[in-house]
Every structure is written in C-alpha cells, then in structure tokens.
Design a protein around this nucleic acid. Structure first.
Lengths: 201, 201, 201, 201
DNA sequence: CATGAATGAGAGTTCATTCAT
DNA sequence: GATGAATGAACTCTCATTCAT
C-alpha cells in the first residue's frame, strides 16, 4: 500500500505548500477510487476510462497519471478488501473448530466479495494483457492464505492432499463469474459444493 | 439442422444446376465453419468478423449471409459437438455402473469439449446480448440431459437432491473459463471435485 | 413461383416453346412491376433491389436482366400513369372553359399522381446519376404538354408570357416532395398558388 | 450560440492555459465548420463524416466530439445565416413600402441562401431521422418570422388569409431543391410566382 | 499536476452489382 | 433466362491513449 493513513503526515511548518499539494493529490486519488468503485458497480471493471473520469469530475489524463493501466486502478479499488480477506484467513483458522470449517468460511468471504463486483471475476480470468497485473495481485495476496488453510486441513486429515491453492482459487473465482446478473445461479452454493468435494472420502 | 442427409436431394436432371450450386454453397459454409473454428481457437469467439472472412478467403458479406449473427456462427461451429455430448448422456446412463459415475463421465465429456475452445466458456456466460442465443442453445441442449442424469443419481440415493441442472451446468461452464491458457489450472480436476461434492454424506 | 401453370399457354403448333417462354417473360415482367410498385409505396423508389426481387418472388438477377438500372424500373412502373397524364392535357384543353382552367386541372392531375408516390418526386430531382433517365422520361413526356397548355393560356391573354414549361414542371414536382409524410403540408394547395401566380396582373 | 463575447473570460493569470486551449479549440471548431461548409458545397450535406474530417485535417473523432450528430454540424454551419435571415424579417417589414413587398424580399433572402447550399434544401425535407433536428431548427427559427410577415400582409388586406407560414416555408424550401445544379431551373423565379399567388385577386 | 482535445485504429453492417451454374 | 451467392466498398461510431497548454 502506498498511502495508508491519509491524514497521518504530521509535517509541520516549512513544507506547507508541498504538503498541501500532496494532500490535494491524495484527495484526488481517493475521489478517483470512489468514482471508479461506483462505476465498476454499474458498468463493470471494463467501463470506459472516460466514464470514470467523469464520475470523479477530473480529466482522463488525471486517471492515467495516477493509474497508468486499468489493472492499477482496479487493484487500488479493491486492495483494502482483498487485504482484509487475506488477513481473515489466519484469524479464522484460529477461531473455527476445524481447519476445513475455517477454509469454508474463508472461501465464503472471498465469494461474498467477488459476487458483488460486477465483472471483476471475469476480468480476473481474462487473458487480456491489461488485466495480468490484476490477476497477479489477487493471487499473490490470496493464494498463500489459501495454501495455509489447505495445509492445515490436510494436516488434520480432513481433506485430500492433492489439491493446491492456485487452481482452487482460480476455480472459486471462476464460479463467481456472472453470478451478479443471473438469479437462477447461486455461486455461493456451488463453491460450497466444490469445497465439500475436497473432503476425504 | 439444414444439411442433414447430404444426398437426400437425389433429383437427377432438372435440379442438377441448382443441386450443384447448392453443393458449392454447402462447401462454402463448411469452409466458413472451418475458418471460424480456426480463428476461434486463436482469437476466441469474439474475433472480428473480418478476420473470419479473411481466414475463409471470402468477403464479409458472405459471412453475414450465412450467419447473420455472431451467435449463429458460433452455434453452427459447435453444434455437432454439443449434440454429440447431449446424445452421450442417456448412453452413459445405460452403460455405467451407477448414475453418479455416468454423470461424472458425462460432465467430463462436456469439459473436454469446452476446455479446448478458446473463449467459448467465457462467451457462454457473457451478458453480451449478441451471445444470448449461444447461451440459450447450450442450455436448451444440455440442461435436460444433465437433469436426467441428476434425477437418476438422486433416485439411486447417490447424491443430494437439492441441486438442479441449470446452476450445475453454469458452474461447470464457468470452471472451464481460461483453462486453455493456464497450464497450472486444471479444469477437469476442479469439475470432478464439484461433482464429488454432490455426493450424499 | 417463377413458372406457374407451365402448359397454360394456348399457343398452338410450332412456336409453342418460344411462345410460352415469351409469355412467361412477360408475366415475369408484370410480376416485377407489381412488386416494385408495392415496394415503392412502402419504402420509396430507393428501396433495395433485393426487397423488390423478394416481393416478386424472383432473384435479384432477374430484376437486373429486365431493368438494368433502377431508373428503368421506376419508369416502367409509372409509364402508364405518366402517359395517361400526358394524354389528358389536350383533352382538358378542349373540355375546359379556359386554357388557364385546363392548366390548373392538368397540373392537379400531375400532383395527384406524384403525391401518392412515396419518394418519387424526390428521386426525380435527385442529382444521383442513376435517376437521370427517370428525370428525362418525365420531362420528355410532360413538358411538351405543359408547354402547349401554357401557350394556349398565353394566347388567351390569361397568363404572363415569361414562364416556360420546364421550370414550371420542375417546380411543381418539387412542391410535391415529402407531401406524403407530412400532414401539415398540402402540396396541392401550394401548387394551386403557384399556378395562380402565373395569372396576368 | 456558444461563443458570443470572445473576450468575456478576462481572467488573467491562472486561467491562461485553459484560456489559450479554449482559443485553440474554438479555432479548431471554426476549421471544422469551414471544412464542413466546403464539403457540403461539393458533396452535399450527406457527405461522409470522414471526408469532412479529412478536409479539416483532423481525425473523425474530432468531428464527433464537436458535433455528435450530423444535424448538429449542419446546423452549426448554417446557423449564422439562418439567424441573419430571421432577423431580417422585422427589419424589412419596417423598411418596405408594404408588408407584401417585405414578404417578397424576405423570401428572396431565404431563397438566395438555400439555393447556394448544395443538398441543404433536400436534406431539410428528408424524412431521414438524422435530419430531424435540422428540419426543426430551420422551422423554429424561420416560421415565426414568416408568420409575422404573413399576418401583416393579411392585415393590410394584400393577401389571402388562408395560408399559414409552415406550409409556405416548406414549399419555398422545396422549390429550392436542385436549383444549384440545373441552370434551366430558376428557383427564385418560381418562388416569386408562388408569393405572387398569395395576392388577393 | 491537471486538463480534455485530438487521434485513428478497429469493429459492425448494408447493399449494389456481378457471374458461375 | 433465372438464380442468388459472393464480393467488397462505403459508412458509422467508439474509445484507449497521448500530449500541448
């Protein structure tokens, strides 16, 4: 993360001008992220850059300056939620009665996140070069957590030992595609089945 | 299907000219289908119409004449394989030792088909209006078969009774997205897990 | 439906084949003219050739064979009515109480014809090269009649002598453009004003 | 009008950059209008957007940015002249010896304008949806003026009282169609006859 | 830094016209 | 003669991305 704690720069005195400019920039970034999030909800993550700029009330150039590629923008928009999800893994492992239960709940968290993000799941799997970084970010952040949960469940003898975290995460992601627009399709349900299928015997 | 029973117009004499013309046209259609199939492999089913025309060595107008809609073309390209898949369902049910085994093998057939069609799985789930007919065709053809297999397995007490064919098919389709371009991702495996997850207990 | 009643031509003896063919052709032409007239009514004289062929139940090639240019077709469709209009001129001159009255009624005839032909007036003035022949046909046929009426009216001292038939006919044609689709616009009325404007004093 | 009072943003300093940009843009708009006017003269108002872009030395996108609709462009090109014509109405009414004379001269102004605009008169009557706005603009602007002149002439007892402005304007517009390409056709003359035809007795 | 105008490649689609059968 | 498949030019419109101000 490049700018946590928005108001935390206690730079006093001299650097005022620079400081306020930096503050402006930061404000701009946030505006942009909010705008992007809003547009993503209605038009999906492939929405025209211009729409996002318009929603934010800035020029397209500003979008490009802050987020050179679309992936950068998408990552930034969802970073907090992805991070929160990643951090929830170990916590669940500690709190739940069994590693498999923890895995199930953690996966549920991820699905709840994805299912509400119009087009995100699809973008994540897109072979479009522009989304490579997005794909990578999600995996970098979540695969290790998933691996940890998987290992614990294997160690506890609850699940088969021949499934690795990467394909599992991609599978879960895939199952979430299109869930937001088809009421007859329940991604949560199917993911639960998939996770159930991991069980030994 | 418009070309069943190739030799059915055995009319000699009069219909010769028309017949041979029709033969040419049919050949052309096939050329087009082959070209489309080839382009779909490399560029996905959303490839520009112009590319397909070029691959087939015809003008764009010819593509539009035969397949007014992109969905028409995609359906035509895959119709035989979808039909074969649909027909395999009852056969497997008769041949396999148990309904669940039949379901598993049938699903495997579908996955083998999908996984080799670049972008097809993705297109099938696309909310793009142009692909609606495609979506519909696949579902019309395969959901009933899947439902039949599911029912049999439920009747045999092998699987839970709370899963319906439509979401299952969509889930399977989703799991196949992107499988052709990522060697670390094994769609067959995940689908097998999903089907395993249907088991009672 | 391109060769109904194959043997219906009562041509006796030798010339049967040629005779029946010629009759067929003629029938085809008439079918085509009827079809064209029908399509012109609904889609205007610039309707796609394919639409006309379809309406007639023939191939586009047949249309082109009989009417190499669109103008040929349009002329053929309206020839009878144009001729009838042309012939009405001298008759009216003989029947009416004054040459100006005859002119007025004759012009009314022409307007009644044009106003019911969707797009014809516009096509006639179009500088599109494809319509040149159409333009020419109408003028060749009608300008002399108009000139005759004009001369008689001038000779009778009813109208000014400085208006010639050609621009008058074009003006009348122009006034009819778009009349069929705009209920607030009454071409007959305006043409009557124009003709009234010819009056001396 | 969007550019009245050119120097009205007298903001010094800060707004300079934006100001000069705006000036460029304005210049560009003008270039575009000039180019469009030129192309309209040679190819008519239905000329391909690309041709206009090429004439202006800009990309097609630029044309669409400034004038989303063809009608917008056409209106912009002719706005000044239409406005000038509209404004001339009352002035003529004040200056001429009689309302009918004013009407005659005003109509002459309009004809002089239309007759030099290749295809404009035709486009104005076109039932093409893309030209609806154009049609509307002309009528909105000119019909009231015409109505005013008409009323005055009626009040003065010079013309018949049963002709309204709308059909009269349309008729005049129609009479101008094709005038620019046919030396044997004198639209001014015919329009004058039409206006003469309005006279009482 | 911000702006948003400009660019232009790219995709879709329609039809007049030709010509092999 | 009739057919209608094929051709491909022509047009429209959209957006990602750059860059002068």
């Amino acid at each position: 993360m490049n700018d946590s704690a928005p108001g935390a720069d206690g730079t006093p005195g001299t650097a005022r001008a620079a400081g306020s400019r930096r503050k402006d920039v930061r404000r701009n970034q946030q505006t942009l992220l909010d705008a992007a999030a809003a547009v993503f909800v209605t038009s999906g993550v492939e929405a025209p850059v211009r729409d996002i700029a318009a929603e934010a009330g800035v020029g397209v150039g500003t979008v490009y300056r802050h987020f050179p590629t679309r992936a950068d923008l998408v990552i930034a928009v969802y970073r907090h939620q992805v991070d929160a999800c990643a951090e929830a893994g170990p916590a669940l492992l500690a709190a739940e009665v069994s590693p498999h239960a923890a895995l199930d709940r953690w996966v549920g968290l991820f699905v709840d996140f994805l299912v509400t993000k119009h087009g995100l799941a699809a973008a994540m799997q897109s072979d479009d070069a522009g989304f490579e970084a997005l794909h990578a970010y999600f995996l970098d952040r979540l695969v290790p957590v998933c691996a940890q949960l998987l290992e614990a469940a294997v160690a506890a003898g609850e699940i088969r030992s021949d499934v690795t975290a990467y394909p599992l995460m991609r599978g879960i992601g895939n199952l979430c595609i299109g869930a937001e627009t088809d009421s007859r399709y329940d991604a949560r349900r199917l993911v639960a089945l998939l996770v159930a299928g991991l069980r030994k015997d």
